[in-house]
Design a protein around this nucleic acid. Structure first.
Ligand SMILES: [Mn+2]
Ligand SMILES: [Mn+2]
Ligand SMILES: [Mn+2]
Ligand SMILES: [Mn+2]
Lengths: 229, 229
DNA sequence: TATAAAAGTTAGATTAGTCTAACAATAATG
DNA sequence: CATTATTGTTAGACTAATCTAACTTTTATA
């Protein structure tokens, strides 16, 4: 049985290697900063995870997941996202409140519990932030996704997910009317100061690249990421 | 914020001092055996709980709860029993499966979560084993209860709760048809070998004092513990 | 009440997870 | 390619929670 800490490391490694889509391996310092620990601590832990055959790793090298490590990490993420969905859909939490509570609930080890919860929720595909929920084998289809910062000017698109789950970010989105399913158009992109004017519904709002790079969208006409509409 | 371990100690002290109704204080060895640790370990922990002002305690003395210790212990029990109710009523777990999972869920620290869950469940008064659920202040009315072993022969009574939550015990009760709400009559009590013949519904079953002392009942006519029916 | 039994404590060790400070290897850059 | 910057490791210390083994206090009983 994995400890809280081990599960959190696996989850962080999954985020870096599978979800962020930059590389399939991650450095110790990067991991340390994600987990808010010092590099020395992460270095130690990575060696422990290697001994348990959950990661591939050599001294001074990068970290990547073994089959088993990936499966277990994905299961933590499944639990996290199912609980977020429960809190949001059943207990009427707002989308900025669910993450923190799910950080605790995700460590409850009962496969039966998660399967029953999944059934109770009607086998949801996505969590309240639009992220896909892995199945009970820890499998998931990771879609190639586009952010608002990559969308061409004038093309209507639909918000499908958000990358950042912080309270500040989500409340900001609420204020400007940007929710999952909303239609947005990049009205103008100012090269000089990198600000983007976004039409959300009827209203235009000027936003930073920090926002546009954290909002995932698909084509508003065909619903695909890559399209020729 | 309390650790898992500290919460488990508080819960165990509540059980011994408030629920078992023998004394309002408990010994270190007794605590140790309840928590499956060695006396040395419990002795250490009790001193830590004292430093946090959660228990009253002097070297070589007995342990009892402070106001704060009692409140926090009762809140752990509230969470445990609300989760058991959720697992049983909403996710269709059987009454012998809920305890183990609740042992993990009870340590999730979110008052809002528990209040919302309470609301979702319709403010239940009792958990699947018939135990009362403390309110959000950690308060509860502890009823004076009678077990089957104390009931007089021939008097019909109603099962209101079970003391033991072990899988073995609860499955055994299922097999002999003894559920919460069932009507039972002590048909005969054999002094020699302390076995009791119990009429449950239409069927007679011979049971041990281990069973009769773990089943709580009220008078079948008036619904009270002490009555003159 | 003296002795034995039970209950409780202390000392010292261990493991997980963390830190700081000093050091070493690798990568980037002039 | 030599120097610097970045990245990662090691050594040594700390806390929480546990153990074993030896010791002490309290309680029971002959
Ligand atoms: Mn989340
Ligand atoms: Mn999410
Ligand atoms: Mn229980
Ligand atoms: Mn219960």
């Amino acid at each position: 049985m994995l400890s809280f800490t081990e599960e959190n490391y696996l989850k962080a490694i999954v985020q870096h290697t599978l979800f962020d889509g930059i590389s399939d391996e991650v450095g110790v310092n990067q991991l340390a900063s994600t987990l808010n620990v010092k590099p020395a601590t992460a270095s130690d832990m990575v060696r422990r995870l290697k001994k348990k055959e959950l990661v591939h790793y050599e001294r001074y090298g990068k970290v990547s997941l073994t089959k088993q490590g990936q499966r277990l990490g994905m299961l933590v993420i499944r639990r996290h996202r199912l609980w977020e969905t429960f809190l949001y859909s059943t207990l009427n939490f707002s989308w900025d409140e669910v993450h923190e509570v799910a950080e605790e609930l995700e460590h409850v080890h009962s496969g039966k519990l998660m399967d029953r919860l999944d059934e109770f929720l009607g086998y949801p595909e996505f969590d309240p932030h639009g992220e896909a929920i892995p199945n009970c084998e820890g499998e998931i289809k990771i879609p190639f996704r586009m952010t608002v910062s990559e969308m061409s000017v004038g093309k209507p698109c639909k918000v499908i997910a958000v990358r950042d789950e912080s309270v500040d970010f989500l409340r900001y989105l609420d204020r400007i009317g940007l929710a999952i399913g909303a239609t947005v158009v990049v009205v103008h992109r100012e090269e000089y100061d990198e600000l983007t004017t976004l039409r959300i519904g009827e209203k235009d709002t000027v936003v930073s690249p920090k926002l546009t790079s954290n909002v995932y969208v698909v084509c508003g006409s065909c619903g695909k990421t890559k399209c020729s509409c």
